[in-house]
């Protein structure tokens, strides 16, 4: 079996993000970059299939040189090969198109990805990739198995679980709960340093959408201290709730 796992490098959720001077992108200073958590579930599922059924796992990511950290980490965890698609595309359709162009005709039986990229939260690349390749898809998957006929997946839907079956090849997007990702072994870390990351110029079209503004949530107003004795404070609080917050 041949498996492709698409990985995205995203800012660590603990990073205090700042908007860059252009008003529409992140200021990269002081940002710690990590693999999107949902993509970690995707990779772990591929590695488990490799161990249980035998598979060759290739990881792919779009971006510049910094993305190599994500790919190197995936190699340390057990991926067999890594490909960097050099591109500065960030629009979901452009990314999906570039991934499809790479994956087409390579004979992948399964393509795993996170159900969304952490932070961007578009949840678009996986479904678009399946459509562009004209293959089956199952999204927001919390349980997955390869069957004789193809695959069986449990999807998280509003208020319940949906079970879908389909034929391979297919795109599967992972949700939290699918598995518990492993840590890299020291052996894996050492071995990953010796593997090469293939670099390919990506063929990404112009984006279908463009970010025009990025705005941080408004800062929370400072608290206000009510003065006076208990009765005066209660009266002031009542007024504030009624006239300012318009609670009633």
């Amino acid at each position: 079996m041949k498996i492709l796992v698409a990985l995205k490098q995203v800012p660590d959720t603990e990073t205090k993000v700042k908007v860059a001077a252009d008003g529409k992108s992140l200021d990269p200073a002081d940002v710690k970059w990590i693999t999107s958590t949902y993509d970690e579930y995707a990779l772990e599922e591929a590695l488990r299939l490799k161990e249980s059924k035998g598979a060759e796992v290739t990881v792919v990511s779009l971006g510049g040189d910094s993305v190599k950290d994500v790919l190197r980490n995936a190699l340390a965890l057990g991926a067999d090969a890594a490909v960097l698609l050099k591109s500065d595309a960030s629009d979901p359709l452009a990314v999906a198109t570039a991934l499809a162009a790479y994956a087409k005709d390579k004979g992948f039986d399964l393509i795993f990805a996170g159900n969304k990229g952490m932070g961007g939260d578009n949840a678009s690349v996986g479904p678009m990739l399946a459509e562009l390749l004209g293959i089956a898809q199952a999204n927001v998957v919390v349980k997955f198995e390869v069957t004789d006929a193809g695959f069986r997946a449990e999807r998280e839907i509003e208020g319940g679980t949906e079970v879908v079956e389909g034929a391979l090849p297919a795109v599967i997007t992972a949700q939290k709960g699918l598995n518990e990702p492993r840590y890299a072994s020291l052996k894996g870390i050492m071995a990953a340093k010796k593997k090469t990351i293939e670099e390919v110029e990506a063929t990404a079209p112009a984006g279908a959408t463009a970010v025009i503004a990025l705005v941080l949530p408004a800062a929370r107003p400072e608290g206000r201290k009510l003065d006076g004795d208990a009765a005066a404070q209660a009266a002031a609080l009542l007024n504030a709730l009624k006239d300012e917050a318009k609670v009633f």
Partner: peptide, 22 residues
Amino acid sequence: RQLGEMGFMGMTVPEAYGGAGV
């Protein structure tokens, strides 16, 4: 057990003897 699986329990022991060989 997890530290063992990752190679932290025999760090300087060569891989041939089950260690991490660092």
